[in-house]
């Protein structure tokens, strides 16, 4: 399973600060619209859902369509409220999940 790469613009934040998250994950994002050499449609296989939680509370999520590029990149912000785990989860069409985690310390 692919290991996501995650960057927070700060690991330590004051309560109320905006924290910027950038994440990259390796995935073909097969659109389901391409054909192979024999003319058969290559089945769709994409990461269709992305979620970010901080201490289990959702701060941002997204639904992806096949128009999202391969190796999806996502960048967003959340408001720092408490120290804890920043967990990023991508859900595949096949139901499998890719999960990455970072820590944030809020003072």
């Amino acid at each position: 399973m692919a290991v996501p790469r995650i960057k927070l613009d700060k690991k330590e934040a004051k309560k109320g600060d905006l924290v910027e998250v950038k994440a990259l994950v390796a995935h073909i994002m097969e659109s389901g619209q391409r054909k192979d050499a024999s003319g058969a449609v290559i089945p769709r296989k994409i990461l269709n859902k992305f979620t970010c939680t901080v201490n289990g509370k959702e701060v941002f999520s997204a639904d992806f369509e096949p128009a999202v590029a391969a190796n999806p990149y996502i960048q967003f912000k959340f408001r720092a409220q408490e120290s804890g785990a920043v967990v990023l989860t991508w859900t595949d069409d096949d139901g499998s999940k890719i999960v990455g985690e970072e820590k944030i310390t809020v003072s």
Partner: peptide, 19 residues
């Protein structure tokens, strides 16, 4: 894509790459 925000997001901003 559809992006989902809440007050916990702090800012309604997202960046991705598309086809």
């Amino acid at each position: 894509a559809t992006f989902h925000f809440s007050p916990a997001s702090g800012a309604a901003e997202a960046n991705t790459r598309i086809r």
